[in-house]
Every structure is written in structure tokens, then in C-alpha cells.
Amino acid sequence: MVEAKALVKRFGDFEAVRGIDVHVRRGEAFGFLGPNGAGKSSTMRMIASVSPRTDGELTVLGLDPDREGPRIRARLGVVPQQDNLDSELTVRQNLQVYGRYFGLSRSHVRRRAAELMEFAQLTERADDEVEPLSGGMKRRLTIARSLVNDPELLLLDEPTTGLDPQARHLVWDRLFRLKSQGVTLIVTTHYMDEAEQLCDRLVVMDGGRIAAEGSPTELIRRFATREVLELRFAPGEQEPVVGLVDDLADRVEVLPDRILLYTGSGEAALERAHARGVRPVSSLVRRSTLEDVFLRLTGRSLVE
């Protein structure tokens, strides 16, 4: 569906995307994971054929975005980072007007709008203006709108950023349904749980480059251990303990109020730590998540 080789995007002197290779297969859910400014959105805009690449190769649906932009966009669905609905039109009108830009007949967009409002649980608000809708409803409407042309490939740029947990789960539920219907999804996110929930395969981007690629479980296996033991201390009291435990794990990370021990067995490590007289305020054994991978690959310090 998408094939990128040594893809580069520069804005003046700033290199947002620094030569990435991406290969997205039909029917999969593919994720771009990374901190703000990693180059995810720039990559998405190039795939969406609204932003010409500076260098490298890119084909989307087998076509070259530079030459066949409109033909590609006719078969894409795009959910931008910020909703850009027509706030003075109704829910129904937003869907119908948008569908017309894809060359669809009036009767077709009318039918399609009704289906999509059902899908997005917006039927009750069909003839209400968009402006007063909640953030979650607007997001669902934006997703519904992106489906008006029955796209083969759906691009979602941070689909659930800013939504409350209920709204996020509803959006995820709808995206699962689309995936099960065979729609190819490309998602950018900086939520690890979102990536783990949705993506079959993902790349971690950092500073315009791909830092790692694989399925969520592969990435966890490769860049983290099976389990993580968290030893919590009063802030500052963890430092003297580090020397006592650093041989108990494959990797140790020291945070202001705790020590993270990356290990195959958290319980075993905890027992040995206790045996050495380590007395944390509390301890927690958990499975490694993509968040551990992400923070390992992109660092803990704030990226601005």
C-alpha cells in the first residue's frame, strides 16, 4: 500500500524526515510511534499526498504522489491531527458535502452519511450543528468523514489525542471494526497503549529517523525484558541502593523516586533484593510495555 525508500522531507534548513524506509502491507494496521517533532506528521502528510517529498522514493497505492496526487487522494481517508470540520454545518451536511468532493452522487452521499452516522454513533445528532458537539463526537465525526469514499487506506494522525478514556475506547472500537473489514490503517500516536492495542507492526521514530521497527511484542522482546521490577523510594533515597541491585537485572534505570530493574523475572529479582537488605517503600512487578521500549529508544528527557 505504501512503499518509501530513503524518504526525506526538509523545510528550509530543517530536516523533519531524514531518510526513512517504510513498507505498509494491505490489510495491516501500521503505526508511527514517536515523541512530538519526530517527523511522524510530516511523513503522514507525504503519504496523504498533500506534501511533496524533498528526496527519496515514495509510492502510495502503487502511484507516485508527485504526479498522481488527486488519484491517490480519491482512494484515501485522512483523519488529521486537528479536526477541521465545518463547524457551522450539521453533522449530516459535513458528511454529505465532503463526500461530494470525491465525485460521489448526491443519493450515494446521502445513503453513506446515514450509514456513517450510525457507525460513529452520531445518528441522534444528525441535524445538529457541529460546533457544540463534544471533543469525542467531533473526533468520531472526523473519522466518519474520512470513510465517506470507502477508502482502501486510512491515515489517522493521533486519532485519540485529547479525548477522555471512554471516548478513546469508542474510537478504538470503531478502528478495530474497520481493520476487521480489511481497511489498511496507518496510525501515528505517542500513546503506547494505543499502539499496542491497534498496531500489527510499527516503527519508532525519533529525530526524523526510524529507531526501531517490528510488531509490539517483537519490539518489547528486543528492546526490553519480559518484566520490569519497580522499586519505589522516597525521592533521593534510591541513589545509595543502586549499587546493591544493579547486578540483579539486564538493565537498570534510575528515576527520581524509583529504580527500574529490567529482568526476565521480577519476583526473583525482588527476592534477591530483599535478601540484600533493600527496603523500598513499595515494589511492583509488571510486564514490559511499549512505553519501556519507547523511552529506551527516544530517551526520557523532554523532546521539544
Binding site: P70, R71, R73, A74, R75, Y101, F102, G103, L104, H108, R111, R112, E115, F119, L147, V148, N149, D150, P151, E152, R177, L178, Q181, G182
Partner: peptide, 11 residues
């Protein structure tokens, strides 16, 4: 959902 629909096209 996929209502055997004509997909989008360029006008």
C-alpha cells in the same frame, strides 16, 4: 459498512 460502493474518484 463497505456498501459495495463506488469509491472516490477524481472529478
Amino acid at each position: 459498512m463497505t456498501s459495495a460502493a463506488p469509491a472516490g474518484r477524481v472529478v
